[in-house]
Design a protein around this nucleic acid. Structure first.
Lengths: 361, 361
DNA sequence: CTGAGGCTCGGAAACGTTTCAGAAAGCGTC
DNA sequence: GACGCTTTCTGAAACGTTTCCGAGCCTCAG
């Protein structure tokens, strides 16, 4: 805010300038602009004219300080470039702007320190809620860390919402919005098994990631349900990216692992796997079937189109925002403040073209 | 901000609470926390202890009002889900957080009204700059609209930065950061032509979009340079999405258009085109070559890997933020304030596997 | 004609910081 | 021993709004 009082006006116009120039009180200008109180048509016209002339805009900070202010939610995402959770952000933003709320997006880059810094920053901003997106590593530490965040935000009159993460244990003031991760994996694996596959390569994701653990558990349950022995050697952990999918399949092929299908933890991983298969001269789905998870646009753009699990990401964003709004509206008539909600949305398998019964040997 | 003075504390702790409890003045607490002034070790310890005990955080709005405050930039993007420009956002955010700046992201959804509302909202917030991402439709109106934005923000002590958009005409206080769009298209088309292609289907994008116009112009210049007649019937306009790529190729095939290569306006369009080609039983690149533009991750994940034009999106974001920071630091010693900069970054062709000489008939 | 009751509007007190102008205290110097 | 200078801290004035409280005016009934 460098000062430059040189030429005439200097700085931006304040409500006082408007008041003076219109020959009315500051209070009246505020009344006209906020529209919270009745004003005579004459006054309104006079003020609005000056407002337009001076190109005046209300200072949001001053307004927030004085009581008014637009409710704002902060969305914290680990990587704005990663496909899946940007859809959640989109959902939140859409729902927010529908209510006239403002939403900010911050990127943590999977760095705990940056995450902490951002949460604190948002707390300073006095946001209505901080919405954290994406799976969590290290369950124990996750619980501790989130509990701290939740209490800290709660004390500041804000609220913590966790999307795509497991619920918090104990009496922690936070809301979690998740999807039926394990159920989706169960259904997806069942789809593969019912097509006749018995030897399937599983790429659930990073071993420490709660999402990956859930997907693996779901798959294992399906194997049990079908009475198919589960071979831990067929499980390869790794990050949710294209390279991992590619490398894992390449490596498996090199080791001579015997499989007729790939159960990928993510559509992007599936894309990498598909590429590796093809590079090795194998056809999808004739020689090897392959399925993904998430149902991002990429899934229907691959050749063959990918059979995958649909996750209602955008809807999750909308639900998250509604939870915040409800809580805020609810105010005192809310049930005992301090306890959180845990909302779970359903998933379902989207059958496309990447699965076929295994080839007869 | 519902009041709940019931149990003890009530609301969040203010600097006054800290001051009283530590037995010092409000000013001293502020000094300790901001670190702008020297303080005795004793005082610092005493204050910090209370700060921790009360879990106090400064109110960002009050701070901004009083003069301090974290510089903030607003990133406005039309679709957070679209791949290319999220990388710009990432670049801005990275550079911003490196300086301790804050960045917000807003989504316009290509809606002019929403764009206007967001710009005004950001102006209220007193952001250091508003960074608008993505190509523009309707050049004339674009110039008018942006000039208005620029002047409005400038008057409010903020600054407008346009990324991936053409420079503004006249003396408008804005900075534009662009890439050599036409040059990239020229190089890409040349690559195709030098491989021997003569009949190429061009999918530059939406006819009104400045980006698309530049890409088409670049391609046309290459045709001229190679002395190859340019056939307007081989140009199909449409949005930058997968469906357009698919539909355009399908339609062309159905009309019996004769071509040996596709010059897509975007990697995503190329992906759609590739799929349509394959659905028609044509092989890429043996029967038809295909190239994209943008070099998003998808490009190297397609089969075959896509030859495309690399655009330094993330770098553009960093450059945009640096421009804002420079201008702010520069302050008065800057050359005549009011005129803007226009920065252009280079592009280059990334050769991968999707181009081959045309088949001999 | 007078007094009660509505409408509008203005004055001024918040809101929670930062920072300027001084005051108190400690120290060296003449 | 007094004066002036640092050093460290405090009181109070901004910053730009919103909103409570009350004053003036008009209308209408008695």
């Amino acid at each position: 805010m460098s000062e430059r009082k040189a030429s005439g006006d200097s700085g931006r116009a304040t409500i006082r300038h408007v008041a003076e120039r219109a020959g009315v009180s500051v209070a009246s200008v505020s009344r006209v602009l906020s529209g919270n109180y009745p004003v005579s048509e004459e006054l309104r016209r006079r003020v609005m004219k000056v407002v337009r002339d001076l190109d005046y805009v209300t200072n949001a900070h001053a307004r927030s300080l004085a009581g008014g202010g637009t409710p704002t939610v902060a969305i914290l995402i680990n990587n704005i470039t990663g496909a899946a959770f940007t859809h959640v952000a989109k959902g939140v933003e859409g729902a927010a702007s529908l209510r006239g709320w403002l939403s900010l997006v911050g990127t943590t880059g999977d760095d705990p320190e940056r995450e902490l810094a951002l949460v604190n920053l948002m707390r300073q901003q006095g946001v209505a809620a901080v919405i954290l997106l994406g799976g969590a590593y290290d369950y124990e530490e996750y619980q501790l860390r989130m509990a701290r965040f939740a209490r800290s935000l709660d004390a500041a009159g804000s609220h913590l919402v966790l999307v795509g993460r497991p619920p918090l244990e104990g009496d922690v003031p936070a809301t979690t919005v998740d999807y039926d991760n394990e159920g989706g994996a169960y259904a997806m694996a069942s789809h593969l098994l019912s097509a006749g596959h018995r030897r399937v390569l599983i790429l659930p994701g990073h071993a420490e990631l709660t999402t990956a653990q859930g997907r693996l558990t779901g798959a294992r349950r399906a194997f049990e349900a079908y009475g198919v022995p589960f071979d831990p050697k067929m499980v390869l952990h790794g990050p949710y990216d294209y390279e991992h999918g590619y490398d894992a399949v390449e490596e498996s092929l090199r080791l001579g692992l015997d499989f007729t299908a790939v159960l990928a933890g993510t559509d992007v991983v599936a894309a990498g796997a598909m590429q590796a298969l093809r590079a090795a001269g194998l056809r999808v789905p004739e020689d090897v079937s392959i399925v993904g998870y998430d149902d991002i646009p990429l899934a229907s753009q691959l050749t063959p189109q990918l059979t995958t699990v649909h996750v209602p990401y955008e809807e999750m964003g909308r639900v998250a925002l509604r939870a915040v709004a409800d809580r805020r509206e609810g105010g005192g008539s809310r049930r005992k403040s301090g306890d959180g909600d845990h909302l779970v949305l359903g998933t379902h398998v989207v059958v496309r073209q990447s699965v076929q019964p295994p080839p007869v040997p």
